[in-house]
Design a protein around this nucleic acid. Sequence first.
RNA 1: GGCCCCAUCGUCUAGUUAGGUCCAGGACAUCGGAUUUUCAUUCCGGUAACAGGGGUUCAAAUCCCCUUGGGGUCACCA
Length: 555
Amino acid sequence: MTSRCRSVMACWCGQVVRSTVVCELAEQEVVMSVRTRFAPSPTGYMHIGGMRTALFNWLWARRNRGTFILRIDDTDQQRNMDEALGPILQAFRWLGLDWDEGPDRPGPNGPCFQSQRRHLYDAALQRLLTSGHAYRDFESPAETQRQREAAEQQKLVYVSSRTSLHLSADEIQQKLAAGEPCVIRLRVPREDRVVIDDHVRGRVEWDCSLMPDPVIARSDGSPLYNFATVVDDAAMDITHVIRAEEHLSNTPIQVLLHRALGNNTPEWAHIPYVAAPGSKEKISKRKIAQYRKNPQFQKLFELGDAVLSRLGVDASSDALSPVMVAYYQQVGFIPAGVLNALVRIGWSYDDQTEILSLSEMISKFSLERVIRSPAGLDPDKLISFQSHWMHQLPAEQKLEGCLQWLQRAGLIGNVTDSAVRAYVASVVDLAGDRLRVYGDIFNVDEFFVADDALQMDQKNFEKRVLKVPAVADLLRQVQQQFRDTVDFTSGPLHDLLQNFLQQHSLKPGDLFPALRLCISGRAQGADLFRTLELLGRERVDNRLTRALSHIAAGS
RNA sequence: GGCCCCAUCGUCUAGUUAGGUCCAGGACAUCGGAUUUUCAUUCCGGUAACAGGGGUUCAAAUCCCCUUGGGGUCACCA
């Protein structure tokens, strides 16, 4: 297996074949095995921008029938792994992005946790030291820092002093024996240039004479990010490194490391980072307070706050925010909506296509159509995608979701009870388009609260009921007719009320808003007659009685 | 500050590789109208952009140069 992959790789890494996944090899067409990876460090939450990067990696792998790898960058972690990694895996599972190699699914190239791959880094380090591509640097951090600042003051480009390079083998051994601390640096070939052909940015070049020698291993011997990444990317046969633009400046170092190690370099695709709505700044967990003031974020925060408060989650805390994938799950977004919004940040298929299912994304995705400039998350559009996909969802699934949210808010008891399920199903059906996220079910909580706990829209109650003297009498008559009518279902109720209007020469607006307010506490809502039917004769009667007593009391 | 990246409606974007079919298309948002018992949905319609300046060319959103603006990154973090 491995040998096949290598022989295949040899044909595309010779930079003849680019941006294509099929290449000719000795007259026969070989589909190369694309291998992509996403390498989060366990931070305790999944960043929405990171999720988009992961999605592009996943899509590219799936599109090419390749392999998607989840590698855990836990080189400097000391916290509880479950706590730190859990939410990340949870986000992948929720969105349905599976991994071929990763936690619980070790691949042929060793464990996916970098903390368990130390021997590989040690071996690579040894090779670089032996070949002279890397060197031990005994210069003190303070001294290095001093030089850096001096260069800066003189407006010179800082490059490493390399004084340790003048040490003889004996001197090095002596220092080592004496326990003198040193880091290991890559010896940058200063006369060289690094040129990459980035899938989204095209040709990007760097002049090595401007680069300080990067530290690749700490004084305790542990590898640094740039180094571990290169070793792992090579060991795991990663063919395409798809990552956010902020890593572009790491690329020359990584290319140099690959060269020094004698690896084939992977292809690069530096995708734009996800910006905060309406800005070009990277969206960040630390700026939530600022985002709350952002008008483009308004609707999302309103939606989120409303739902989360019902679930007993403190929405104003930074523990859960729109920067995190978990936020959307908690509010009741569905994967299809979130995925659709994510894929359209920085990527388009053509000038028309907006709606894409995951399988359509797989067949249509390409790195070449990723845009270069940073793209802001568009909360309005996210909500719009969300409502589109929610409408596509089969009734049974909508029901399951709403049941969960209702239960978590304590509005219903046993979700397996068939009467409860049937009732909620009717409410969900009645709510129809108003349900964009599962949490929107709370917007029709009048169907779940006790009659005497019904919240009243005071402002509208005053305007449409209290300030219209004639309405009380009408409501009393309607209440009586409701008591007398035989069939308390929407059709007959519709006829009953229409007749009532005719008899009194009233327009719908004279009665319906007041009636709606009394029974639901709201000025607007779904079909009035179906609402009456669902609530049922008894609850409607109770609520009318309660409203009438409010009217009598003048409040 | 050095290095690197980016620049089309309010937002997400198409168009830039091969200059003309673009007095710039779509979507979301917004505004107006129709439908509806209200709200939501749906359907019609409107407002709205090539950062600026120089070139090259018969012709530039598209090519070149400069300016301006925005951003990323400069660790014994990832």
